[in-house]
Design a protein around this nucleic acid. Sequence first.
RNA 1: CGGGAUGUGGCGCAGUUUGGUAGCGCGUUCGGUUCGGGACCGAAAGGUCGGCGGUUCAAGUCCGCCCAUCCCGACCA
Length: 474
Amino acid sequence: MQFIANRDEDYAQWYVDVVLKSKLADYAPVGGCMVIRPYGYALWENMVAALDGMFKETGHENMYFPLMIPESFLKKEAEHVEGFAPECAVVTHGGGKKLEEPLVIRPTSETVIWSMYKKWIHSYRDLPILGNQWANVVRWEMRTRLFLRTTEFLWQEGHTAHATEREADEEALRMLEVYRRFAEDYMALPVVCGEKTERERFAGAVRTYCIEAMMGDRRALQAGTSHFLGQNFAKAFDVTFQNESGEHEYVWGSSWGVSTRLVGALVMGHGDEKGLALPPRLAPIQVVVVPIYRKDEEKARVLEVAHQIHARLAKNVRVHVDDRDQLKPGFKFNEWELCGVPLRLELGPRDLENGQVTFARRDTGDKGTVPLDALESEVPTLLDMVQTGLFDRALEFRENNTCTTDSWTEFREQLEAGGFVYAHWNGSGETEARIQEETKATIRCIPFGRQPEAGKCILTGEPSEGRVLFARAY
RNA sequence: CGGGAUGUGGCGCAGUUUGGUAGCGCGUUCGGUUCGGGACCGAAAGGUCGGCGGUUCAAGUCCGCCCAUCCCGACCA
């Protein structure tokens, strides 16, 4: 039986139940690590395919750098080493011997990549380099959580090099926009785009941009980041180029990444009391056909049509016929709902008589019928409706749980209840830290396109130029 | 690393207080009846009780040490 914890009473347990029982992932023998199971990996593959296409459309090429990085590389950028050293796994032995220099398992690849960019970049004609790699990285976190934070995870990391500051910053912003489009158009999750405060900035970046999504428990999840690196890594690795005037300049950089954490974002962004609810554009199975029959004679007829439906839809839709004989339809309904399949088609004797199938939408639970001969056109339409329905539901949920306030009391109460709060802030990291101590909330971002608005800092009452987004986060 | 908890067939648990031949539910396999919202009957398979050591005629149970995992904090995509 696949019963899961009540989502409102124990959100954390609900999340674990959904991930395990929908067979997205399982705990691995190594602490803090997880195994991504076929269903979860298929979901990730669909994400990879969509993102990879978008990267290529924006002119990027894939490449691959080594898993192990000389320890000294990490130390070349001061902030970078400070940020990452504590969470690095270090290889000290190889081939039965102690290594001359320890090797760090990459927590991110800026250092090794910039060490190579030094070799490849000499002239402005060598720029830009628009590279991306799909890889695994290791960060030795103390506390882990399936998909959201595991010791090893899969991601992509884009690393670009440019001749001008403006170009590098534009690149960072362009890729954040790619992430926004992916989150909203594919994952059906509305996101807030903005810039991180200095305190939340990537170690080694000049500016960090991010997209922030609201999860089902009203907490925030950073779904993607894009960094304008300035010349920090170019200086650390001495990467210069000769410009058109023959002068030597340091190269400007950007880096950006999203990870398998996005799978967790889907679970928590759309899941409900029945389990997962996957957006059709990413769902490994978009349509499941459940045959219903009593007698052998009915079974033969129903299965024949079910497989015909499969053959007709399979050209354009990821469809699966659940012809397992030993399970009752009701069990299958619940199981596929737990697994988040966007659209279910029920096919029984009654449907055959009427030349139709019964459908059920995962997002709303609405049922209806579609004439058999209209399936090719109607199923994609229904899938589009589910895609839109999920986005609208998530957006409405976020708006209903977002407030703007100038009252400290209301600020605290809203953060305590969960949700997003737009409030004034005096711009100091110290204030930010104090607010976190008091409320457990952090500044998720300084939103793009915010209205300039004179106000008083929610904590100190000091002057503020505009509101920032506060929330408790994963 | 600090705090808490748990390790017993595949999964979830009871049994430990008071030592005496290891049990339940689910799942699995076989046979049959079922099938429009989580079916039922019958039969069967499956466990050196996390590890090591100790006490004892006898240890899942008592004692010691170790290991692992999960949850809560600090860190973080």
